[in-house]
Design a protein around this nucleic acid. Structure first.
Lengths: 142, 142
DNA sequence: TTGTCTGCAAACTATTTGCACCGAG
DNA sequence: CTCGGTGCAAATAGTTTGCAGACAA
């Protein structure tokens, strides 16, 4: 069953409605295959059908997050990024402070640190919401 | 030489002026010994001398960050926190998504992960700007 | 005196919300 | 037909900025 079909079925099961707007947002997220701001998604949706409102995009993104089909990261630049969760599920995000590139990394990489914080501080890391600032390979060369 | 004296001297050396507002912000940051929002700092400064503007607080905090005397964290709740960097220098921050508590941890704890990202992804972590969401001991008990 | 700093008020900007109409089921 | 969803417009809220006057050096 494709990603869209899963979403559409879950919608129905929980009494939500399938609207063209929701279809378009999901389809745009597929096209993008990576991170996008609400604004970028809104522009792409607008290109397909004008007079779709950005507030609908936000509302749909929230819905998709409730369904665990979309994750969002806050890179700290005041503009949240959204990402379609494929079969890979959540990963953590390295955010380049210079060029803005976002690199997805499997959660396993940070597990030793997460375990350490749990043991030393009793702190449960929410790794799926983690975005880590720094400099990507290209930018750290300069 | 005390923290204030360092700041005042650096100000002079670089042609900035020492104003009562700047003194008050620094003094309030000392009192607090931890994290505070711009609003909290503003309130405390207002208690000392009314009619100090919050924009001045923001401007002073930015100046203090330029001088590496203050660090700021974005816990992702839309309200940045500021912290006086004492003799300990930077540390990383565990931010509780439930109660908002911020726990400071020495940078050493995340070094193995930082090294791994550098090697595997060529990504240079900006550990001093790192804030990690999760649940603190008290909140994860519930 | 000089030109930095400040208070004030207005601008910004990403996101959220109230509301009346629209349209999926 | 119902009532959940949408577009529109206005509200939010933390932070930033333009400007004329205040004041540190």
């Amino acid at each position: 069953m494709s990603c869209e079909e899963v979403f559409f079925q879950q919608l129905r099961e929980q009494g939500f409605r399938l609207t063209p707007q929701r279809e378009m947002v999901l389809s745009v997220l597929h096209e993008i295959e990576g991170f996008a701001t609400a604004e970028e998604i809104y522009e792409r949706v607008s290109a397909i059908s004008s007079s779709v409102d950005i507030s609908t995009v936000y509302r749909t993104l929230e819905l998709l997050q409730d369904f665990r089909m979309v994750a969002s990261v806050d890179p700290g630049d005041g503009q949240r990024r959204y990402e379609l969760l494929g079969l890979h599920g959540h990963h953590l995000h390295l955010v380049c402070r210079s060029c803005g590139e976002i690199i997805g990394v499997e959660l396993g990489a940070i597990e030793p640190f997460a375990d350490r914080m749990k043991k030393e501080q009793g702190f449960d890391l929410a790794v799926e919401h983690l975005s880590i600032p720094g400099l990507c390979r290209a930018c750290s060369r300069d």
